[in-house]
Amino acid sequence: MSAGADHVVAGVSPSSPRAETVAWAAGEAAARGAVLEVVAASSRPGDAEEAREALRQAALLATERAPGVAVVTRVIAGSPEPVLRAEATGAGLLVVGADDQSPLLEAITGSVPGGLLTTAPCPLVVVPKDAAPPGDTAPILVGVDTAETSRSALDHAFSMAERSGRDLHVVHCWTAPRDPAEQRAIADCLAGYARACPDVAVTVVEVEEDPVTELARRSRKAALLVLGSRGRGRLASMAFGSVSRTLIRRCRCPVVVLRAEQERIGS
């Protein structure tokens, strides 16, 4: 698998950083041998001092979680979504915390994680509030739709499972009538990954179930969920019930989302 970019970007609130978001980003940066860049977007004049204190706390959290990781902190004037989008250009990952607001309010005002789903220039990781560290046997999940649309997600999931030593559970949810041709295409695709990553223990789960319900349930005992996204805009994905948009709100483990058109970046 290809090597990832040499830095991980974590977006934090200029008032108080979430410990679980910073800890996850620091651990991943250390595992990659990457620099962790912690960014606070300050949209109000006079907030810079508060933001600098938040970043000081974030840097302490990062080094507690991953001693020796290189940490860079930056306060940048502007709104969070465009600031983080710009800072994540060329990064291996962009890590943010899940949104607290209701789905109705998000539909009216938007949200930073929801907006970045369709605009982030690299894989996006959304960490749920108060996410607990996963157990040693917690698997990595990857949700697959079709063989073609799931390739970026599979590439990323196999890379992370290979590096972490965790089992990989490939979850394919389907509704009747089942498409035998697509089932064969997914099997052939997975066979290729198995040959490339022989040390990854893979379990394939095929279930007639709504993907949001099934993946949200399985996320309670998972270390990570990897998803592909077709990259619909915010209003369109609201209307069509985007799986990735719903899951970043409902999952209890961090969720990695890759758009189909993004370059596949390994870990």
Rank of each mutant, 00 (worst) to 15 (best):
G90Y: 08
V204P: 00
A41F: 05
T118S: 15
V69R: 01
L227T: 10
G228A: 11
P139M: 02
G233N: 11
A185R: 12
A51R: 01
E182Y: 05
E37C: 09
L215R: 02
P180M: 08
H169C: 09
G143Y: 02
V200L: 08
A161H: 01
A25P: 00
A147V: 06
K221P: 00
D47S: 13
D155Q: 11
L117V: 11
A91G: 04
H156Q: 13
P80S: 07
A40S: 11
A153Y: 00
A216I: 07
G135M: 10
G4A: 14
V207H: 11
V200C: 05
L235C: 02
T119S: 15
T213M: 04
A157P: 03
V83C: 05
A3H: 13
W24E: 05
A48W: 08
I140Q: 03
L93V: 08
K221V: 13
T21M: 06
Q57N: 10
E208Q: 14
S242N: 06
P134D: 07
G46L: 06
V9E: 03
A54Y: 07
G165P: 05
V71Y: 01
E263K: 12
F240T: 15
M1V: 15
L247N: 10
R234Q: 11
A25S: 04
L105H: 12
P121W: 11
R249Y: 01
S111K: 03
V8H: 01
P14M: 06
G68P: 03
G97F: 09
R178L: 10
E50H: 11
G78Q: 09
H156S: 12
R234V: 14
S159T: 08
G11W: 05
P14D: 03
A54C: 07
R52I: 00
S15H: 13
A34E: 05
R52P: 00
V126L: 03
L84E: 13
H169L: 10
I76M: 09
M160R: 14
R234L: 13
C189K: 10
D136E: 15
Q57A: 14
S267N: 02
S164P: 09
A153H: 01
A107I: 05
R44W: 10
Q262I: 04
R195K: 14
V256Q: 03
G27H: 10
V127H: 01
L225I: 05
P133Q: 09
V207Y: 00
D100Q: 14
A138E: 08
W174C: 01
A86H: 13
A26K: 05
L36I: 11
P80V: 08
V75Q: 12
S13A: 07
E148G: 03
L105R: 14
R166Q: 06
A201Q: 12
A222L: 08
E182W: 08
R151N: 03
P17D: 07
A88R: 02
H156P: 00
A70E: 14
A77E: 14
R218L: 04
V226D: 00
V71Q: 03
A34P: 02
V12N: 05
R218F: 01
C197Q: 06
R252S: 13
E263I: 10
A86G: 12
A161Y: 01
V35C: 09
E49S: 14
V72F: 06
R184Y: 12
E87G: 00
